[in-house]
Design a binder for these strands. Structure first.
Lengths: 187, 187
DNA sequence: GGCTTTATTTGACAACAGTCAAATAGCGAT
DNA sequence: ATCGCTATTTGACTGTTGTCAAATAAAGCC
């Protein structure tokens, strides 16, 4: 759990009391490769911190699995829409490796917000960073070419290829696997 | 200012004290069409609430203006990345009509967070809704065709065409103006 | 109203990306 | 090492979208 708290310092420094209260609410989960963390049609009631391993979020569109997101060490993971609105998830989250995760329920998190202003602040600040990250990805997705996006992704995460099949990366970039293969052959 | 507080109730119900403190921090701005709210290269220190009118966010890419966002009545407006990170904005926000806005500085908002837990909560909840909205737009942008996106946009905001030039809408959808024109001619 | 400027549509063509099908490469298991 | 399965690449073809240029329509101004 040290790793989680070290990571939280990137957002905001909690008081000791808040940290202790938070520590009480997280439970550790160790799950094998290919397991599902979230399945479409079910309400997602947990927020996960990914300590070790990697996973993907995907949904089904016209019989195809569209991988739209990857999670790695130190990422927070949930079906955000479902977690917030308490509506059944439209996506699946599947482990691409065996993972170590820390989970907290929405009920517990909400209770912590009431008791600890600084936990709510930390989350507010975390949302800001996640929002900016999504905004950048959105702009790239819409206004850059496929090969620009691929090259940028390789710069940002050169380790990606070692852990994620190309087909998933192609979906993530919003292109077909064949197109990605051709982009790669021309480098 | 009534309209602002009515709108805030969609996120969270503030105490009277918080509402009064907040009211003290907003200043009214009435600006004419074509005016700039935010210009690239300058740090954006304000968050705006758009009471009346509409505006667009755009940035320059290869000599072209890419309109990536519209704001209408009851939207919060800022260059979010610049506002949060205090780095110069990469985008411009220009009024497409004469507008009535309410502005608050980042300093004042931060101070309010310290004094009023419930204001920080309101913002935390607002972030959640804005995040989900962006996520939906992202998924549509990447995994739907241009005409699907156009039709969906027309369903969601049928009023858009009356207030926004087609060229801006095309950029917003991530397609050329000519392509949008051809999509429209086939309906 | 007539003139100027801007917005929108249309046409022709080239570039890009998708699809389907087949070939090859890589990997795990025995 | 070999077999079998999966991942990745390649080829041929099609369809969509972008670009450039020109035509038409609409809006603003005197």
């Amino acid at each position: 759990m040290d790793q989680l708290f070290r990571h939280l310092k990137n957002f905001y420094h909690l008081t000791d009391e808040a940290r202790e209260a938070l520590a009480e609410c997280f439970t550790k989960h160790v799950l094998p490769k290919n397991e599902y963390l979230i399945s479409q049609g079910r309400v997602c009631r947990h927020l996960y911190f990914l300590e070790q391993g990697c996973l993907r979020g995907y949904y089904n569109l016209d019989d195809k699995e569209i991988t739209h997101w990857f999670g790695f060490e130190n990422d927070f993971v949930t079906s955000f829409h479902s977690f917030i609105t308490e509506v059944p998830a439209v996506e699946n989250i599947q482990l691409m490796e065996g993972c170590v995760l820390w989970a907290i329920t929405k009920e517990r998190l909400t209770a912590l917000f009431n008791d600890h202003h600084d936990i709510e602040r930390l989350v507010r600040i975390a949302y800001e960073k996640y929002y900016i990250r999504l905004e950048e990805r959105f702009v790239n997705a819409q206004f850059r070419t496929a090969s620009e996006r691929y090259l940028q992704l390789m710069e940002q995460s050169p380790h990606l290829l070692d852990r994620v099949p190309l087909g998933y990366i192609a979906a993530y970039l919003g292109i077909s696997q064949e197109t990605l293969s051709r982009i790669r052959s021309k480098l």
